[in-house]
Amino acid sequence: MTSTATSSPLRLEGITKHFGGVVAIKQFDLEVNAGEIVALVGDNGAGKSTLVKIISGLYQPTAGSIQLNGEPVSFNDAADARAKGVEVVYQDLALVDQQPVYMNLFLGRELRKGPLRTLDRKEMQRQTQGLVDDLDVRIPSAKAMLADLSGGQRQGIAIARATHWASGLVLMDEPTAALGVAETGKVEEVILKLKQRGAAVLIVSHNLDQVFRIADRVTVMRRGTQVGTRETAGTDKNEIIAMITGLTS
């Protein structure tokens, strides 16, 4: 997958969001390229989750434009965004404990076969197993019950599901916030696998250690304003913290 200025999986230009007289986001610009992880950071109330909700169709921007793979898009709601290939992985997983992994991957989008439109369980299992193997999500099998998996394994399934249905872009809103150190490391390995597959990943994270482990670039928001974007290889935590807090030199 090759990225250009006009075919990046995600391009935001001048995104602005007002809630009545309150400016939640002001003139936000960002491009996320194929095979790249961009981290979005800032204090609580900076506008990060609002931005994710705009990209995923929960909110409509007051001004500005969104492009997916070089094409301008606008969303009426989250279902509209999903239909156009926008998938989000949240901290609180939208998964069903009493269903097997493969049914969770195809939740609401089940494959059917034959004139009676019965569930094509074998094909869903095959596709699921292939994807989790490719992403190295370590689970017993695609037929394992979700309730029997650990928090990190469940988050890996949520990421696999987003990858399966996304059109080159995966959004993540604090996907490891509820996990311990070991589980977080496993999920980060899955996220890096997405990069290797050529996906574009935009991740909201409060964990700057995580940001510097996995992200290629980091963009900072403060009180609805985009302060700046840095290559992680060319900055450090002290500069990013200063940008977050406003104590820039």
Rank of each mutant, 00 (worst) to 15 (best):
residue 249 S to R: 08
residue 5 A to S: 12
residue 210 Q to K: 01
residue 197 R to P: 00
residue 244 I to E: 10
residue 182 A to L: 15
residue 69 N to Y: 13
residue 95 L to Q: 04
residue 186 K to G: 11
residue 68 L to T: 12
residue 241 I to C: 05
residue 234 G to E: 06
residue 98 Q to M: 15
residue 62 T to Y: 02
residue 215 A to C: 05
residue 156 G to K: 02
residue 138 R to T: 01
residue 148 D to I: 05
residue 171 L to V: 07
residue 36 E to A: 07
residue 176 T to W: 04
residue 115 P to D: 04
residue 26 K to R: 12
residue 103 M to N: 11
residue 198 G to A: 14
residue 194 L to F: 15
residue 165 W to H: 10
residue 184 T to K: 13
residue 106 F to R: 07
residue 116 L to I: 06
residue 109 R to S: 00
residue 48 K to M: 10
residue 159 I to W: 08
residue 58 L to F: 15
residue 23 V to Y: 03
residue 10 L to K: 08
residue 85 G to Q: 00
residue 34 A to S: 09
residue 61 P to A: 03
residue 4 T to N: 09
residue 11 R to G: 14
residue 88 V to P: 04
residue 108 G to M: 00
residue 55 I to G: 02
residue 4 T to D: 11
residue 164 H to Y: 08
residue 78 A to C: 15
residue 147 A to L: 02
residue 157 I to R: 01
residue 69 N to E: 00
residue 49 S to G: 02
residue 66 I to A: 02
residue 138 R to I: 09
residue 71 E to W: 08
residue 176 T to I: 04
residue 42 G to P: 12
residue 91 Q to P: 11
residue 162 A to R: 06
residue 50 T to D: 15
residue 163 T to G: 10
residue 199 A to I: 12
residue 219 T to H: 10
residue 43 D to Q: 12
residue 111 L to M: 09
residue 82 R to K: 15
residue 124 M to T: 08
residue 206 H to K: 01
residue 14 G to D: 08
residue 226 Q to P: 07
residue 62 T to H: 05
residue 48 K to D: 00
residue 162 A to E: 14
residue 69 N to S: 03
residue 97 D to N: 14
residue 47 G to R: 14
residue 116 L to V: 02
residue 88 V to H: 06
residue 57 G to Q: 07
residue 137 V to E: 00
residue 22 V to W: 14
residue 111 L to F: 09
residue 73 V to H: 02
residue 237 K to L: 13
residue 209 D to A: 15
residue 51 L to E: 13
residue 170 V to R: 04
residue 103 M to S: 13
residue 133 D to Q: 15
residue 109 R to W: 11
residue 108 G to P: 01
residue 232 T to V: 04
residue 218 V to P: 01
residue 4 T to I: 11
residue 82 R to W: 06
residue 196 Q to Y: 14
residue 134 D to W: 05
residue 195 K to N: 02
residue 36 E to K: 03
residue 79 A to T: 12
residue 151 G to L: 02
residue 39 A to T: 06
residue 53 K to R: 11
residue 198 G to Y: 14
residue 144 A to K: 10
residue 228 G to H: 06
